[in-house]
């Protein structure tokens, strides 16, 4: 049986693909609860990561002609990435022996970069949303590390979540 092709790093020159309009998921005319989602990425020594390709995908709101659900942003000289998108709603959880579950609003986020051999998978949740205690993914995470996935609002409509690839405040990454 064929085996899936191996991942290789995206490297330092992925910007040849870069199109900054992709960081705005409302660019095709989507309307709703528009938010800015931003964060700063650091490595295990606290250095800013200025060459990352950050991608997001959200299954809510549903994909439509005006909403791709997908965005890509480059981290800048300050290690910052920023997206404009729509606030997600709760979605169903994975079906399985635990029965029907419901997931709190979240957005999947991956980090691709030089020195990152395969995508680093994480999620962004929103501070203050209902359902975090029952969320099937957050529930797998030791309580002391859950806050690495929970963005906070710095001003109305602007949500911030820093991402540490390694170290004391290391973001929780998933195997999926």
């Amino acid at each position: 049986m064929p085996i899936a092709t191996a991942s290789q790093t995206i490297g330092p020159y992925w910007h040849l693909l870069r199109d900054d309009t992709w960081s705005d998921l409302t660019r095709f005319g989507a309307t709703g609860d528009v938010i800015t989602l931003q964060g700063r990425i650091t490595d295990g020594a606290g250095n800013l990561i200025t060459d990352a390709c950050v991608e997001i995908w959200q299954s809510s709101p549903p994909v439509s002609d005006v909403f791709d659900g997908f965005g890509r942003a480059a981290s800048n000289a300050e290690g910052l990435f920023s997206f404009k998108t729509l606030r997600p709603e709760p979605v169903p959880g994975a079906s399985g022996p635990m029965g029907n579950t419901r997931q709190a609003p979240h957005i999947a986020l991956t980090i691709l970069a030089r020195g990152v051999t395969k995508a680093l998978w994480t999620r962004i949740y929103f501070q203050g949303d209902a359902g975090h205690d029952e969320d099937p993914v957050l529930s797998l995470i030791p309580p002391a590390r859950r806050n690495t996935l929970i963005a906070h609002q710095t001003k109305p409509g602007v949500w911030h979540l820093d991402i540490a690839l390694q170290g004391a405040s290391e973001t929780v990454f998933f195997e999926i």
Binding site: S59, P92, G93, G96, Q103, P136, L140, F174, I176
Partner: peptide
Amino acid sequence: IRIAQSIT
């Protein structure tokens, strides 16, 4: 942390 794949 291994998670079950959901709709996301």
